[in-house]
Write a protein that binds this DNA or RNA. Structure first.
Length: 571
RNA sequence: GGGCCUGUAGCUCAAUUGGUUAGAGCAGAGCGCUCAUAACGCUUUGGUUGGGGGUUCGAGUCCCUCCGGGCCUACCA
């Protein structure tokens, strides 16, 4: 039994996430966690809300609430949706937790003591009306290059020219439109990532089999231009982890907080500490997952994230852990994803374009979404959601191939033998062949799951379901029954057992349907079918079962048309 | 501008890293079955692998070039 630590990129607090966000980190992480638990491994699956930063403060202001209250509410909202999608976090924490405050300050102090923190005084744009410093992209104005009047301070969206906020003509605050902006000096702490460049480079080189997407982004940042740049890790904000604290190896940082990207990954660790506290366990309980000197040396740590998160997970966070000089567990494998687009364009929160997590659950059960999203996960390139594809995939795979199989087997048995596993007859060559075929497919499925090849895993799982239909067609118990009822009994006994096996192997993808199937088979034995012959003999003759309700109702053309219109966006 | 990814059947994707005749699923066509959610099974149509050039005994795979799509580019997260 292995110990596997799994973290999903933290969803940002400022609103409900869309399906693209879901499939980019939390959902595949959940798939992997569920699979590894199913195989009997010890899993720690961690997620949390990422609560700091300018957008959180602005969202709270817009909602007319104190930021702490806003975050607490959104944390609960997102948590409820996570439960709705059956995301099986061992702990769902908050980057604003006391544990994260303490750990972030601890690591920052260690970095400071190691000489890896530098104080830098820089000039930034301050908005008097908004009473805050403005990040470059929160300043708008006319592009000096092309004259576009809604250019942002970091780049003009129209002509793509890189800009400095002071380049803008008639600059204004993107928050309030205020024009009373001025350049002020402010002091910040910088993490001297450049000093760790060679160690990071060697560390990346030592990793085997990481997705190209992951390593190419890391390498780009390491070697582009003058190489890895130092990075500011503090901001002039109210809400966050205070950068000035007892024991800090610097002075004059009062009123400043750590940068959200500094404290967010640390929350992976802190959330595990939150977990320990919530479970009533001691410090050692979480440290054995994260400290190589306290038991984490045999942990395999896998991170899941969208490609936009890669630089922070391959460089900044490792730099933080390495630079601390303490034996923190570093990531072993980074699974990164491309983006999911919506019907020919991007998901858009502001335009209400695309399907968001709350809307998705309001129209269909989680398993439908889980199946489609995972079987179309954007692994090799960006993927696209269309209602037509969604309807076709879900109806065919879930309703026809899997759902109907369970239905035909249980209803046939009920009508001919009653609602018990029938006795009599014996397995022959056809059954041996089925077991052999299932074994081949299952081993392939396992290999793909181990390798986190998600689409391939889904395709192999579907092929496992198809084998059941092929067997039934070939064995034709409805025919056999007329001449040799005992043979039909053996065939149906096998088929009923197969349904239980399908429940087990399908559970990582479609946990609710899997539970329904298992319940219908009157069993609670979820042990992984290492030996399919044995697994298919688990339900003995005479064992009672029930005919499950329709497992997956089909999506009708009317529904599809309705949803297509409803989620197209306001303009 | 620079870097990276990507383009394979009508659609969604494979192809053991240069090796036989480019494979699946869906959609389409035909046949079969009648237990089942008008479900299932079998057979089958469909490709100048974005265009052009090159290297090689051999190219979807490597090189050059052109065309299209996407991402990143360090103060959004």
């Amino acid at each position: 039994m292995a110990r596997i630590l799994i973290t999903s990129a933290l969803p940002y607090i400022n609103g409900i996430k869309h399906l693209g966000n879901l499939v980019g980190s939390q959902l595949p992480a959940d798939l992997y966690a569920r699979y590894m638990r199913g195989r009997g491994h010890e899993v720690m699956f961690i997620c949390a809300t990422d609560e700091h930063g300018t957008p959180a403060e602005l969202a709270a202001a817009k909602a007319g609430k104190p930021v702490a209250d806003y975050c607490a509410e959104m944390h609960d909202t997102q948590g409820e949706l996570a439960r709705g999608f059956r995301l099986s976090f061992d702990h769902y924490g908050r980057s604003s937790s006391p544990q994260n405050h303490a750990l972030t300050q601890h690591l920052a102090a260690r970095l400071g003591q190691a000489g890896l923190i530098e104080e830098v005084t820089e000039k930034q744009v301050y908005s008097i009306t908004d009473a805050r410093f403005l990040p470059d992209r929160y300043i708008e104005g006319t592009c000096p290059n092309c004259g576009y009047d809604r250019a942002r301070g970091d780049q003009c969206e129209n002509c793509t020219k890189q800009l400095d906020p002071t380049d803008l003509v008639n600059p204004r605050s993107a928050i309030s439109g205020a024009t009373d902006l001025e350049v002020r000096e402010t002091k910040h702490l910088f993490l001297r990532q450049s000093a760790l460049r060679d160690r990071l480079d060697q560390w990346i080189d030592s990793q085997q089999g990481w997705p190209v997407l992951t390593t190419s982004i890391a390498k780009k940042w390491l070697h582009d231009g003058n190489g890895l740049q130092d990075r500011g890790i503090t901001r002039d904000l109210d809400w966050g982890v205070p950068a000035q604290f007892d024991g800090a190896p610097w002075q004059g940082m009062d009123g400043k907080v750590f940068y959200v990207w500094f404290d967010a990954p640390i929350e992976y660790i802190a959330a595990t500490a939150e977990w320990a506290e919530a479970q009533g366990l001691d410090e050692a309980a979480w440290r054995r997952w994260w400290r190589e000197d306290e038991g984490a040396d045999d942990v395999r740590y896998v991170q899941f994230m969208g490609k936009d998160n890669v630089p922070f997970h391959t460089l900044s966070f490792p730099a933080t852990l390495m630079g601390s000089g303490e034996p923190w567990k570093m990531v072993d494998y980074i699974k990164s994803f491309n983006y999911l687009n919506y019907d020919g364009g991007q998901f858009s929160t502001s335009l209400g374009r695309g399907v968001f997590m709350d809307q998705a659950l309001s129209i269909l059960p989680a398993d439908y979404w889980r199946w489609w999203l995972l079987s179309h996960a954007p692994e090799s390139s960006d993927a696209e959601f269309t209602w037509e594809n969604f309807q076709a995939s879900v109806n065919k795979d879930l309703a026809d191939v899997l759902g109907n199989l369970a239905s035909r087997v249980t209803k046939f048995c009920r009508s001919k033998f009653g609602e018990v596993v029938p006795e009599g007859g014996a397995y022959g060559p056809r059954e041996d062949q089925l077991i052999a075929d299932l074994t081949t497919r299952l081993r392939a499925y396992e290999a793909h799951m181990e390798a986190m090849e998600i689409r391939k895993s889904a395709s192999e799982l579907r092929a496992l379901w198809v084998l059941g239909n092929e067997y039934l067609q070939d064995a034709a118990p409805w025919s056999t029954f007329k001449t040799d009822p005992e043979a039909a009994a053996a065939q149906i006994r096998l088929a009923l057992n197969l349904i239980r096996v399908y429940a087990i192997v399908s559970r990582p993808f479609i946990p609710d349907a899997a539970a329904s199937l298992m319940q219908a088979m009157g069993s609670d034995d979820w042990s992984w079918p290492e030996d399919l012959g044995a697994a298919l003999a688990t339900l003995p003759a005479g064992h009672a079962f029930t005919v499950p309700d329709v497992l997956f109702a089909k999506i009708t053309d009317e529904q599809r048309a309705d949803w297509e219109t409803r989620f197209a966006g306001t303009r």
